[in-house]
Nucleic acid binder design. Structure first.
Lengths: 191, 191
DNA sequence: GCTGTTATGTACTTATGAGTACATAATGAG
DNA sequence: CTCATTATGTACTCATAAGTACATAACAGC
């Protein structure tokens, strides 16, 4: 009924995500995004609103995908311990070597000034809470698989802290073995 | 021999540090700093160079102080375990409640775009490495205080990951009890 | 083809922020 | 007191980046 879009919004959002991921929200200019996507500013504004709204959309997609994956992996199989180990191990390639050096978009945003905005802060906190609850609920459900002194809630929170710490340390491009060794340490808490 | 400074550079650096700490490097304008310090831009430039150089000076001071404190506490007393616990416990007020919400200047900088600069990245990595080595060296020196399967290097790295993770999670203003519980989990690795 | 509608590209406005020129003020030396 | 020297405050320049006005292009329906 009128001129159609010349681009796929999903593809554009993925490209924008990569730019934000690498440069941070404040470090990214709209010109960076127009250059990466090939779109002109008016097209971006028409499709996604201003820079803030675009970032929120990107961040939501990022969160949604990670949560969906976690929801699946953490609840898979009969052993809570093995499920969580599989989930953590899957992050090794993402927080070691050159590929890891960009860290995690959400955690990067958390330190960026953008997180002063309520909208962003709320989303990041909800994301952290969601992951922690997935871990906690699985550990609680299979509480019987662990020893007497085991505390599912504290363990879940500690795994989150390590997960986040590794994502920050990822910027130093550690070896996969180094990350693996840290995960092994953490797994010692799940007994 | 000429007109003297009207301000104490150390005080100004502390104020500038607080502004950078709260708003991040990219989120801080020189006007923010002039407003907070009461100094005009030419005075800042004459005393500390440009925004970059000022930030590097601030960051170095921050790192130096934390390392000096760690060097003292971690090597104090006969028990490596207790020394490290004391060191970690001292951070509880800094990564819980309202006071914790600014996190750690160094870790914030790590996610800020400023860390793309070699100068900054190098300093942050050296700082992380230094803290980790203090932990590692103490654990190695008192290796005999721990069990057969204990791995000082892996333990040191894991403590660093948790430390960093807690500093990031600090922005969510967790309770001191929550942080304490996580430290208790980590201390279970030092046996 | 013609028309209404929506997308696109160019070129702008506007704001903000880094950095500086220059005139002035405050000191110590003589 | 006078001068050389260094600090300060005002007011600027210049670059960058967000957001937009407007003319034009591409489609659907008639």
């Amino acid at each position: 009924m009128a001129r159609p879009r010349s681009f796929d919004p999903d593809e554009v959002l993925d490209v924008a995500r990569d730019v934000f991921w690498q440069k941070g929200f404040q470090g990214t200019s709209l010109d960076d995004i127009t250059a990466a996507t090939g779109l002109a500013k008016p097209s971006l504004y028409a499709a996604f609103g201003d820079k803030n709204a675009l970032f929120l959309t990107v961040l939501d997609r990022y969160h949604t995908r990670i949560v969906a994956h976690a929801e699946k992996v953490i609840n898979e199989g009969s052993s809570a311990r093995e499920a969580i180990e599989r989930w953590l191990a899957a992050f090794i390639p993402r927080c070691s070597g050159a590929k890891g050096s960009r860290g995690c978009l959400s955690i990067n945003a958390s330190a960026d000034g953008i997180a002063e905005q309520k909208d962003v802060r709320t989303r990041i906190e909800a994301f952290n809470r969601k992951l922690e609850h997935l871990l906690r609920d699985r550990l609680r459900a299979d509480r019987a698989q662990f020893g007497a002194g085991f505390d599912p809630d504290a363990a879940a929170h500690t795994i989150m802290a390590v997960y986040i710490g590794l994502m920050v340390l990822a910027k130093d491009k550690p070896s996969a073995a180094s990350v693996r060794a840290t995960l092994d340490q953490i797994m010692r808490l799940l007994v």
